[in-house]
Structures are given as C-alpha cells and as structure tokens.
Design a protein around this nucleic acid. Sequence first.
DNA 1: AATTCGGGGTA
DNA 2: TACCCAGAATT
Length: 358
Amino acid sequence: MTPRQIRQFNHDLLKWFHEKGRSLPWRETNNPYYIWVSEIMLQQTQVNTVIPYYNRFISRFPTLHALAEAQEESVLKSWEGLGYYSRARNLQKGVREVAEKYNGQVPDDKDKLLSIHGIGPYTAGALLSIAFSEPEPAVDGNVMRVMSRIFLIDDDIAKAKAKKEFENVVQELIAEADPRAFNQSLMDLGAMICHPKNPECPECPVRNHCRAYDEGVQTEYPVKSGKAKPKTADYAVLLISDSEGKILIEQRPDSGLLAGLWQFPMIGESEGGKAAVQKLAGEKIGQSVHLTKESFTHTHRFSHLVWNLSLYSGVICDPIIPGERQEWLPVSELEKRPFPVSHQKVIDWLKKNRRNDT
DNA sequence: AATTCGGGGTA
DNA sequence: TACCCAGAATT
C-alpha cells in the first residue's frame, strides 16, 4: 500500500471501531495488570467465555500484589474450567517477578516483557500497544486471518515462521495509527466481521482495501495445515470412601497435563478387565479394596487427547494415611479444590448418587 | 520445527 | 464431526 492508502485504511478501520467496536470489561481501564490478566485469559479462549472469569479474578485479586501473594491453589481455583492451567501458574510467576524486579510496575520495555514467564510475542505486543500506546504489532489468529485476506498472504499460519511475516505487515500499517485502537480494531474485525467460515464482507469497513474480497477468494484464506488426530486413553476412576463417607482424592504432578489440579485416583485401563483394575487399585491405595463397577462412564475430549473414563467405587474400613499429595475429603468440601472439568462430571454423578451423606 | 498444553462455541 | 479461539513453553 502507498502511504496514502495506509492512511485511508487506518481511517476506515478506526472509524468503524469507534462506532461498532465491542465494549469489554478490560477496555474500561489502562491498568497494565488488568490488561495483562485479560490477555492471558484470552489466549486460545473466546471473549464470551472469558468475561465472567475475568470479573471474578479481578474481584478476587484486585491488585498485582494481591495476586503475587496468593496461594497458587486459590489461583488455580479461580481458573477452574478455563483450561490451559499453566497460563494461571505462569501469570502468577510473572506477577511475582514484576513485584520483585520492577517494584510492582509492569515494564513498558519489549525485551523485559518477553523475559517474563507466560508473556510471548503476542502478549508483549498487546501490553505495549494497549496499556502503553506503543506502536507494536500484536499478531494473533484474528490478525493473521484478516491480513492474509487483505494482502493475499498464503503462508501457512499453522507454521511458526508465518507470524513474522504478519508482524512486518502490521508494523507498516500501525506506524501512523493510534496503536491502542488499531490493534483492538483488528481483533474486533476478525471476531465480528472477518469470520473464518462466513465472512460478512458487505459489512466490512475495509473491504475496499481487501484483495481477497476483490478477487472473491475470501474463504480460501488463511492457508492453514491440519492437525493430528487426538490419541485416546482409557482410565478407571476410583471413588474410594472411608467409613465416614470421605472420599480419597489426589493432586496431579506439578508439570504436564492439568498440573496441580486435584482428581480422583485414576488407573490406566489399557488391558481392561475388572481384576486388573482391582489389583492396580490395591497397589495404588496401599491396601486391597473390593471395587464395584458403576454405570457411570464419561468421554472427555481435549484438543490433543481423548479420555475414556469409567467409574469404580469401593469402601475402606480402615482408612490409609493419605500420602503427600492425597487427602480424604467429605463430598461437601470437594469444591474447595480445583478439579478438571472431566472430574467435575464425576462429582456431579457422586452428588446425585451418593448413598451415605456426609 | 513440531508437540504439548483445555474447554467450549459454532457451522 | 471439524474447526476455531486476543498463544506460550517445551521438546
């Protein structure tokens, strides 16, 4: 684009944004900590899903220091159900880093931001532009889709390399714009008009600048290669209760899938058969236990994994002393711990079917 | 450069 | 179903 075309593009885009842009909780503030929280929550997560989580989170951790000083488990509890839990752990790590290294002030320097845990190229750009009004690109899925159509860029956006190309394009456009409004207007355009499947081009404020619209090939962009088929894993979920009706739960490891969350003990069911489950359950719990296969089963789909869960229950008369990451809890207190959604389904079943109240 | 990290909305 | 979502860390 020529400088004149760039000015016209900016004018058309920002005029639309000020008239039709979304009003969102995190747009009512310039507090870098609030913007930071919102950007982390919004990673791979839709706006409407985030809104209630954001409001609760800010209400519970109203300042950067409040989050820095919180128990990690209470942070995970606030994140429960939102997914990608390492985001929450890294956010708190990053906040603690800012509290110690930068006296609680979120730095407005790109390299310093990128050195903070959980802040990558996108989030650094978003903070610099939205919180500090610096002309930095913030390239996410929306921006790649919009720009791929406007300039007919056919790089595979599933590849890491493609992002640089889009950052260069945005960098040229943003130079003459209000960076804060510019980056957010691209995201709103991507979310409200320039949809992946059925873009509403007649409503688009920049369709006159769009090469894909000009050539009628909007739906062929962006170019994106496919993902691998998720693998499946079968598990026996153990509902072990003591004579008082307390349930044995355990905390998952500090790294990997669902790190730090709580769950009912699980056993890989690869070979199937109740006898095998019974034997492994005895080893896991530390004493032999008679299990009953319940009718409850549940399939949980992650983006890269499928869990097939089936439920076994058993009662222990002489309860074991719980291990380091285990605990006996009454059903009524399970909600104090953060559980993954798959095991919340088990809790739902338990509350409907429990035979002995506690 | 490819894989691992959740869960829900949408056509 | 399949794809997408205000991506980053790890391998």
